[in-house]
Computed example of a mutant assay.
Amino acid sequence: MKKILSLIIVVFFIGCKGDETKEIETVSAPENDSIADDNIISDAILGEEEVEFNLGEANRLAELPLGCIETEYPNKLGQTLENEEALGTPKELHPAFYGCFDWHSSVHAHWSLVSLLKQFPDLEKEEAIREKLKNSLSAENILAEVDYFKRPQSESYERTYGWAWLLKLAEELKTWEDPLAKELDANLQPLTDLVVQRYLDFFPKLNYPIRVGEHSNTAFGMSFAYDFAQSTEDQKLMDAISKRARDFYLSDDNCPVNWEPGGYDFLSPCLQEVDIMLRILPKNAFNLWINDFMPDLKNEDFTMEVGEVSDRTDGKLVHLDGLNFSRAWVFYHLANKYPEDFGHLRSLASEHVSYSFPNLVGDTYEGGHWLGSFAIYALEAASKE
Rank of each mutant, 00 (worst) to 15 (best):
G307F: 07
E305K: 14
V353S: 05
M277G: 06
K182S: 13
P269N: 00
F228K: 00
H319D: 04
E273A: 11
P269R: 06
F12G: 06
D38I: 03
D43N: 13
M238T: 10
V27H: 06
G315Q: 13
L7R: 12
I24F: 11
D311N: 15
S154A: 13
K337L: 11
C100N: 10
D19N: 09
H344T: 06
A375Y: 02
S42I: 03
D201F: 02
N258L: 13
E82L: 15
E380T: 04
F293G: 07
E366Y: 03
A36V: 03
W163A: 04
E300C: 01
N324T: 08
V309S: 13
F302E: 09
I9M: 13
K174M: 11
K168G: 00
R60K: 15
L173E: 02
E82F: 10
D341N: 14
S326C: 08
T364M: 02
L46E: 10
V11M: 09
M304F: 15
L143P: 03
K168E: 07
K132W: 01
N59M: 06
V114M: 05
E214S: 08
D247V: 15
L169N: 05
I290N: 08
G315H: 12
E85F: 05
G47F: 02
G262D: 13
P358G: 09
Y249S: 09
W259T: 10
A381E: 08
L93K: 13
H352P: 09
P358N: 06
E20L: 13
A109E: 06
Y157L: 09
V196F: 02
W163E: 01
E70L: 14
S326A: 06
P95I: 12
E127F: 05
Y365C: 02
S354H: 07
S373N: 03
V51E: 05
Q197H: 10
H108E: 11
E124I: 11
I14R: 07
P30Y: 03
Y377I: 06
L206C: 03
T364Y: 11
I14W: 13
Y161E: 01
N59T: 10
D234T: 05
P65Y: 00
R159A: 09
L281E: 09
C270Q: 04
V107K: 08
N135K: 14
A164L: 01
A109T: 13
